[in-house]
C-alpha cells in the first residue's frame, strides 16, 4: 500500500446535516374551528331529519287512531246488542235449567244476591258465567281475540 494512495476518512464537504431530533408532526388540513363547525352542522341536520321523521310517523299514527275512533260507535252498537242477546239467553237458560229446584231464584243464589251493593247499571260477571250456556270454544276464542 503506497503512502500517496492513503486517504483519511473525513466529514463530507460542508459538514454533516442537522440531526432530525424534532418530532415529525403531521400538519392538519382543517383548522379546529372548521372541524367543530362541520360536526355541529352534521348533528343539526341529523336532528332536523329525525324530528321530521318523528312528526311524520306521529301523523300516520294519528290517522290510524282517527279511523279506529270513527268506526268505534258502529262496532260498539253491534257489540252491545249481541251482548244483551247473550245475557238474555243465559237468563232464560238458567230459568229452564233450574225450574225443578224449589226456592231457586234466577240471578241469585237461593234468593241471596251475589253482589251486596251493585249499582243498577253495572251488572258484573266473570267470563265463565257469560259463556256458560254456549260453546266452550267460543269462550276460549274470546280470550285470545283482540
Amino acid at each position: 500500500m503506497s503512502r500517496s494512495g492513503f486517504r483519511q476518512d473525513m466529514p463530507p464537504t460542508g459538514g454533516y446535516g442537522d440531526i432530525p431530533y424534532k418530532k415529525a408532526l403531521q400538519i392538519p388540513r382543517l383548522k379546529g374551528y372548521t372541524k367543530i363547525a362541520i360536526a355541529t352542522g352534521i348533528t343539526l341536520a341529523g336532528m332536523y331529519v329525525c324530528t321530521k321523521q318523528i312528526q311524520m310517523n306521529s301523523r300516520l299514527r294519528w290517522e290510524e287512531n282517527d279511523a279506529r275512533l270513527a268506526t268505534w260507535p258502529l262496532v260498539k252498537a253491534e257489540q252491545d246488542r249481541l251482548h244483551l242477546l247473550q245475557v238474555r239467553k243465559n237468563r232464560d237458560a238458567e230459568a229452564e235449567l233450574m225450574k225443578n229446584i224449589p226456592d231457586w231464584k234466577v240471578g241469585t243464589y237461593y234468593g241471596k244476591p251475589i253482589y251486596h251493593n251493585a249499582p243498577e247499571n253495572h251488572k258484573a260477571y266473570s267470563p265463565d258465567e257469560y259463556y256458560v250456556h254456549s260453546d266452550p270454544k267460543k269462550e276460549l276464542r274470546s280470550y285470545y281475540s283482540n
Binding site: V106, Y109, P113, A118, K123, Y125, E129
Partner: peptide, 10 residues
C-alpha cells in the same frame, strides 16, 4: 262451575 249464578234476575 258448581254454583254459577247469573246476576240478572227476572
Amino acid at each position: 262451575i258448581g254454583k254459577i249464578i247469573m246476576v240478572f234476575t227476572k
